[in-house]
């Protein structure tokens, strides 16, 4: 039996379509119901919160899983990152209100859902920051004066523009990655390699 963790939501749907195209599917998996675990043959798939996929995989509850690179960078799980599925391509960026100038004498207030990524980025710039961790609607933070800038995922930039914000630096490209538990990989390598081979054929 091989256990696969899929991320719930928009990215999960795109990724599941890739698995279907590669010949892996679980009946009822995309139906609109509350079922979470699906078994087909000797493969079991389940939906979990995107942010939790690395936890399931690192602890071996899932042998493999699909997680966004943003989540992998934020959580730094001790797992294998075997394949770039290229789905959900976007970037991690710093954005600020139009006309923003960094007054480097003050601590920069940074609102983000990804405190570890933001901390690492600004440390590499040698910039002293104050992290404000939020759970969404980041665009609001600089508008209301909660933060000076935001560090967030940017796809097309439309939401930013509509809120009078602009990208200052796109510093990391992101997409969905296939990850594997290190121990599972040793003992289920045949199946995992087969899945990768079939997913990698574009």
């Amino acid at each position: 039996m091989i256990n696969i963790a899929f991320p719930k939501g928009r990215l999960g749907k795109k990724v599941y379509a890739l698995f279907e195209k590669a010949g892996f599917s679980w009946p009822g998996m995309t139906d609109d119901n509350r079922k979470l675990v699906f078994t087909h043959g000797d493969m079991r798939a389940f939906w979990v919160k995107p942010f939790d996929v690395p936890v399931y995989v690192e602890r071996g509850t899932a042998d493999i899983g699909v997680a966004g690179k943003d989540i992998l960078l934020e959580r730094s799980p001790d797992v294998y990152e075997l394949l770039d599925l290229k789905a959900g391509a976007c970037s991690m960026a710093v954005a600020a209100p139009q006309g923003f100038r960094d007054n480097s004498s003050d601590t920069l207030r940074v609102a983000t859902e990804f405190p570890n990524i933001a901390r690492k980025y600004f440390a590499s710039q040698g910039r002293d920051i104050d992290i404000i961790t939020l759970r969404g609607s980041l665009e609001l933070a600089p508008i209301l004066g909660l933060s000076d800038v935001i560090v967030d995922i940017v796809e097309t930039g439309t939401t930013l523009r509509e809120n009078n914000l602009c990208v200052i630096d796109r510093f990391q490209s992101l997409s969905a990655r296939l990850i594997a538990n290190k121990s599972s990989y040793k003992f289920k390598e045949d199946v995992i390699s087969m899945i990768i081979r079939r997913l990698a054929v574009d």
Partner: peptide, 9 residues
């Protein structure tokens, strides 16, 4: 070293 059934080295 890894043992089947243990999630880490």
């Amino acid at each position: 070293g890894f043992v089947e059934g243990l999630p880490e080295a």
